[in-house]
Design a binder for these strands. Structure first.
Lengths: 348, 348
DNA sequence: TTGTAAGCGTTATCAC
DNA sequence: GTGATAACGCTTACAA
């Protein structure tokens, strides 16, 4: 005998196969089935096999909502990124999601479009699902968000940023260092009049940090910086065109340009070709981001590649460590400073 | 007086502010608070205001997990895509996520990498969260997946595909039509020897459908097709280079090439420049996808743009309609055939 | 190793 | 318009 009686028809969860159904099918209590699912070691061999068979036969799918409510912690992790499309964060999301999935955790995702208000809305909604952890981008949040995060008491990770003084887990790189690296690279290759082109989006603080690094490196080499700020209302690609055109018309045009990102650089490259400026002969170019098209341009674009995928993977690993899903011997690393990689191509 | 007594210290949900706390703070029952949240119309003005104040003061965040368990339907929608990064699906995810968020629904996301097995795993995990709806890519699923989906009894949407005969909601476009459109466009512009370059990834059935459309259109015009199949182990960009090199060495080289996607075309473009083949003078080029770099290439790439963002937005809208969140007068559209747009640029 | 009992925080139902 | 009560399906705590 396996089954006992028809379960009385209930009002809600219409016909869903429950743990209880499996338990009765096998002839054990629901706790044994629950243990089979969560701590199989504590279940006898015989029960393990019979429960496995029943699960398959009945097509039982554990109700994670009920489990989450009972245990006050669901196997779900929430992430807020500025945007999903766009060349920057997609790899981070991908790495994060895949690593989580491998360990049975699911990803709850929303985008903020660099608005702390939208971020706040997303986080408020997320917290309702009692996620096991929360991952955000950068350290810039609204006051209400900070309050919620403090009250939530779950692992919090800030990515694409590195603020050692802040409490959350930090996973990112130094934009300042990127500026230094790029500038030194151009200096080493013999360029003397190196300009920096800022992003047209005024809110891009990271770009300004990269610029500061550039200024420092040039200062150390005794070279005077030359910063170009595009009109704020232009799309980056157009802003890059504008920058190149205006810079090359100056009395002493630069012999190298460090663009705040690859979109700007691509615009610059195109404008250069149209204007008959030889790259890198007349002027070298360096971007940031290693967007997918960087190697497809003519000439291919030298750039600095941020560890986008690695940030996502590491964020997931730190989350899983904090949750005890992954166990390591090492001390837990709250601060994770990753490195960018300079990729020299034809444009420099 | 507002508060009554300290809530007894419970074992689990450590210190979380509950609906009950809000109710006691105001002096009503939890049901009134619940109604305030879900059907505010049924709550008196006075209570509405006092509850609103209490919610703000206490920092109450509704526990959606508990709500989901009680009502057997959470405000969460699950989506499986082949990949998150990559130029194809990111826009769809973005549009889907944003539209959902605007209506208070959250996105649960996973990627399948075109593996029905991984898709099955993701869907199994998702169903545990009783999502309000499920969105997948294409109609190709494992048997077990089909069974689960049938049993789940929630709105199911298949995107980036269009199979009128299948039961789920369909949102996509006709790849065959894309092939026809592209070929006719090239014919109209006077090209006579038009080649088609397939994708190097053998599993790309959509590309083969586009190719079939190309063959049909050429047949109707009395032109014989010329299909090039790259080596299967090459990355698309490299495959494109190979294709161009070999095609241009033939006795009668093509005067136009229709590439299965923009990555292939970009490779072809680069190889052409290196080989001194003038584009579009010696040979025109047409791609598919309108990847971000298409307009940045030299010459800029003519291509066919799929409605990626629109697919995502429409998927969300259909979900929300089916759930009754959005109400329209029109009859519900189960079949949604969208159109691609041909973007003529310098390469043709 | 297994079972019993008591919640987890919300909503459906029905009564007032 | 409001409230009492009983689920929702699972896990924690404790007992055997």
């Amino acid at each position: 005998m396996t089954d006992t009686a028809d379960p009385p028809r209930k009002r809600r969860g219409a016909g869903r196969v429950t743990q209880d159904a499996v338990a009765r099918h096998v002839g054990v209590s629901t706790m044994t089935v629950s243990r089979y699912l969560n701590q199989p070691d504590q279940v006898s061999d015989e029960h393990r096999q019979r429960i496995a068979a029943a699960v398959a036969e009945l097509g039982y799918v554990p109700n994670l909502v009920a489990g989450g409510l009972a245990s006050a912690k669901g196997k779900i992790v929430a992430m807020v990124v500025p945007n999903i499309s766009g060349p920057i964060f997609a790899d981070t999301i991908q790495g994060f999601s895949d690593t989580l999935a491998r360990h049975g955790y699911q990803l709850l995702l929303a985008s903020s479009y660099f608005s702390t208000e939208q971020e706040e809305r997303a986080i408020r909604a997320f917290l309702g699902w009692s996620p096991a952890a929360l991952v955000v981008t950068s350290h810039f949040h609204s006051e209400a968000t900070e309050k919620m995060l403090a009250a939530a008491d779950i692992p919090l990770i800030e990515t694409w940023d590195y603020q050692p003084d802040r409490a959350p887990i930090q996973i990112g790189f130094s934009h300042h260092e990127v500026g230094v690296t790029g500038a030194r690279y151009l200096l080493q290759r013999g360029y003397q009049r190196i300009a920096f082109v800022l992003n047209s989006a005024a809110g891009d603080f990271s770009a300004q940090e990269r610029c500061a690094g550039y200024v420092q490196a040039l200062g150390e080499a005794g070279v005077s910086p030359q910063i170009f700020t595009p009109a704020g209302d232009l799309a980056p690609f157009e802003a890059g065109k504008q920058a190149l055109t205006e810079l090359m018309q100056r009395a002493t045009p630069p012999d190298a340009i460090f663009f705040a990102n690859d979109n700007l650089a691509a615009g610059g490259l195109l404008a250069a070709q149209r204007a008959g400026v030889s790259i890198p002969g007349d002027c070298a170019m360096l971007g940031f981001g290693d967007y997918p098209f960087a190697e497809m341009l003519m000439p291919s674009l030298s750039t600095i590649k941020p560890p986008a995928l690695q940030i996502g993977v590491l964020a997931a690993e730190r989350v899983l460590q904090r949750l005890g899903v992954i166990v390591t011997d090492e001390v837990f690393q709250r601060l994770n400073l990753l490195e960018c990689r300079l990729i020299g191509r034809e444009s420099s």
